[in-house]
């Protein structure tokens, strides 16, 4: 019997269903909030037995400093290596733990991060941080506005 497209799609979002691990780049989208001083704050957790980040995609409204609370609700130990200007940031995430990482990112664009233990990166523990916005006006080309796709 052939699985329906809906069944396959649902299976891509789960550990050991259609695929062995959750397909990276899929999952919930969350947004960081901007604080009064212009820095940002976000939260990412690892749900029990999902081997995935939730949200899988964290969206920042602009480049700058962001403090991310990382919560491990899983009964396995994970960790995270996250992008940041100057040096990547590392944190152990023992079972049922939480910690923080402060990152500085330019953007615009998106950045992968992951848990470099075992094959966490091959499951859903490869996540994305998206930085919205444009480069500063002084860095743009001196030309009229151009068409985009």
């Amino acid at each position: 019997m052939t699985a329906s497209t809906e069944q396959v799609l649902a299976g891509l979002d789960k550990q050991n269903s259609a695929t062995l691990g959750k397909l990276i780049g899929r999952g919930n989208v969350g947004q960081a909030e901007e604080k009064a001083d212009g820095t940002m704050r976000g939260r990412i957790r690892i749900p029990e037995d999902e081997l995935a980040w939730d949200p899988a995609v964290l969206v920042l409204p602009h480049g700058g400093d962001v403090e991310i609370e990382l919560v491990n609700d899983d009964y396995n130990t994970h960790c995270a290596v996250l992008p940041s200007n100057g040096d990547s940031k590392f944190i152990w995430l023992p079972c049922l733990s939480k910690g923080t990482a402060t990152l500085n990112l330019d953007g615009p664009g998106y950045y992968w991060y992951g848990s470099p233990t075992g094959n966490d990166e091959g499951r859903g523990l490869t996540g994305v941080i998206v930085v919205l916005g444009d480069v500063p006006a002084e860095a743009r080309l001196d030309r009229p506005a151009q068409p985009r796709p």
Partner: peptide
């Protein structure tokens, strides 16, 4: 309510070299 272990603050990766 989960009683979380404090994982602390992320460190520079080059600190582990």
């Amino acid at each position: 309510m989960t009683d979380y272990v404090d994982a602390g603050t992320a460190i520079d990766l080059s600190g582990l070299t």
